[in-house]
Amino acid sequence: MSVVRIAGGVTTAAPQRSVLLAWLLAGAGILSQVMFPLTGGGTLPLTVAAVVLLAGASVAHAWVSRGAATALALVGVAGGLGLVAEAVGVATGFPFGGYDYTGTLGPEVLGVPVLVPLAWTMMAWPALLVARVLVRGLVREPGGWRARAATTAVAAWALTAWDVFLDPQMVDAGHWAWDTPAPHLPGVEGIPLTNFAGWLAVAALLTGVLDLVVDCLVDPDLARHRPSLPEVLQRDSVPVTVYLWTYASSVMANAVFFGRPSVALVGALVMGVVAVPLARRAWLARRDLGAGW
């Protein structure tokens, strides 16, 4: 990771080649997802490709923007806690409710497909970083407990909201099944409310720990400098783009291609709580910086 000085302090500037790798992985993952509607909702190879590539993009971005230790922490915290939560969930029904994987997602560890903790890793990083963007300016002490609590709350919502789209797609594809799919979120039939409550709890634990660990691993010289919002969005443009793409493409796919208009509507509202203000901030930051990022 390189450091450059700018007016007003110090900021990180990841080497262009390294940033390009994260962009290439994200672009390839997005291209894999574009193929889903053309294959009737996706095939196993496309699903594996999308998850592996986008998880790789998150890890690569964590590495080039904040160092190798942060990338390893992302894998350990998001992937590790995600695996533990899923293994406990399959074995006991807590905290998501009773469900079973059907063996269609490839190799498993502790009864959980390897692809699943990769999916937690894939979206935990964007969820945390977009939460940090949205919390900026809402609290007086950027490093204080109020900021950390607010970041965890927003990140947990951002991550859970994605599952409003994900779970119906995976259940319809036959990758897992719920023991008791009711009561459910209005418009999202077949997915119990306990699932989303469990997601909120696990996502809060996961992103809260990750937020703290990442701050502990950041170079102290860099931690003392609080970059402007445009600088933050420029540095974290890869995960921000992935999150906004996930929102827009999920709404479109469910509304137009998958025949789930109610899921599209509910997901648009729930995930839009995060995605819409994020898009506005990104647009304003792009305008302030110019069209160069």
Rank of each mutant, 00 (worst) to 15 (best):
L115T: 12
P107H: 06
L118N: 00
F96C: 06
A127V: 05
V133G: 06
V88I: 14
G103W: 07
R132P: 09
G111F: 11
L115Y: 09
V88L: 14
R136F: 00
A131I: 02
P113H: 08
P142M: 11
E141V: 14
Y99A: 11
L128K: 02
V109M: 15
A156E: 09
V130Q: 03
V114A: 14
M122F: 13
A153D: 04
A153R: 04
V135I: 07
Y101I: 11
L105A: 13
A150Q: 04
T102F: 05
A149S: 14
A149P: 05
V133Y: 06
G137R: 01
V88E: 12
G103K: 07
G97E: 04
L118T: 08
L83D: 02
G80S: 08
L128I: 04
A124W: 00
G98M: 02
A87H: 08
A87I: 12
A87V: 13
P117A: 02
V88R: 06
P117V: 04
P107M: 07
A149H: 00
T104K: 15
E141W: 12
V109C: 10
L105G: 12
A156Q: 03
W157P: 03
F94R: 14
A147M: 11
A85E: 00
G143D: 14
T104A: 15
W125V: 06
M123P: 05
R146V: 10
L129N: 14
V114Q: 03
L83H: 10
R146W: 10
V77T: 07
E86T: 06
G79W: 05
Y101H: 13
G89M: 06
E86F: 02
G89W: 11
T152V: 15
G89K: 00
L105Y: 07
G106S: 01
L115R: 05
L110A: 15
